[in-house]
Amino acid sequence: MSISKNNSSIPQLILASTSKYRRELLERLRIPFEVISPKVAETPLTGESTLDLALRLAHAKAAAVAKEHPDAWVIGSDQVADLCGAAIGKPGNFESALAQLQLMRGQTVTFQTALCLMKCEIQTTLCVPTEVTFRKLSDDVLENYLLAEESYDCAGSAKSEGLGISLLESIKSDDPTALIGLPLIALTGLLRDAGFFIPVNNIQQ
C-alpha cells in the first residue's frame, strides 16, 4: 500500500506493550502496527526517581523488541504515578485501589508518561507529565466508584476516560492522552519525523 505522493511505502511499526489502553490509543492514528510484549521487568532501582523510572522502562521496552526487529520502528511507553516523590503502582484489587484513592484525595499526583521511538541506533525518549488533582471525597463515594468501574489495572485507580473523571478536580497537561497511557501529540510528531504520513492516504496507487 502506498501512502504518499511520492509512493513511499508505510514503514513497519511495532507497539512494545501489553496494555490494551495503549493499543486502543495508537489505533486512533489509523496506522498499521503490530503489538509485541517487551517482557521487561518493571522493578524500580534503588533511589530511582519516578521520572527516571518511567524513562528507563519506556526505553527498555522499545529496546527489547527493537533488538529482535531491527527493520521496524518500535514504540515503548511507561507511566509512573508520583505522589510527593513516591511511586504509585497498579492496585490489582479493590482494597489496594481504595487505599490509593484515600491517600490521593485532596492531593495532586503527577503522572509521568514516558515515550520512546526507536529503530536500531535512532531513538528519541521523552516524558510528558500530567498533574492530576483529586477531589476530597468520602469513602462511600470512592467505594461506589471502584465497584462501578473496577479500575484495578491502572496506576492511581481512576480512569479519567471513564467514570473516574468524577473523582478529579483538575487535569493539567500538554498532551491529553498521556494520562491514559500514550501521549499521541508527542508520538505523532515523532512518527512524522520518522517518515510516517498521518493521516494515512489509503488510496491504492
Rank of each mutant, 00 (worst) to 15 (best):
E68M: 11
H69M: 10
D71R: 11
A72I: 04
W73L: 09
W73M: 06
V74G: 02
G76A: 00
D78L: 09
Q79I: 00
A81H: 08
C84A: 14
G85W: 08
G85F: 07
A86P: 07
I88V: 13
G92A: 02
N93D: 14
N93C: 13
E95A: 15
L98N: 08
Q100P: 05
L101H: 03
L101Y: 02
L103E: 13
L103K: 15
M104I: 09
F111I: 03
F111T: 04
Q112C: 11
T113P: 04
T113A: 01
A114K: 08
L117H: 06
C120S: 14
E121N: 15
E121C: 11
Q123M: 12
Q123V: 10
T125H: 06
L126D: 03
V128E: 03
V128T: 12
P129Q: 08
V132E: 02
T133Y: 03
R135W: 01
R135S: 06
L137Y: 09
D139F: 11
D139V: 14
D139Y: 11
D140L: 12
V141T: 11
N144T: 09
Y145L: 07
L147Q: 14
E150W: 01
S151D: 15
S151H: 00
S151Q: 04
C154I: 15
A155G: 03
G156P: 03
G156S: 05
G156T: 03
A158L: 02
K159L: 07
E161I: 06
E161A: 08
L163G: 13
L163R: 11
I165S: 15
I165V: 15
S166Y: 10
E169Q: 15
S173P: 05
D174C: 12
D175M: 00
P176G: 00
A178P: 05
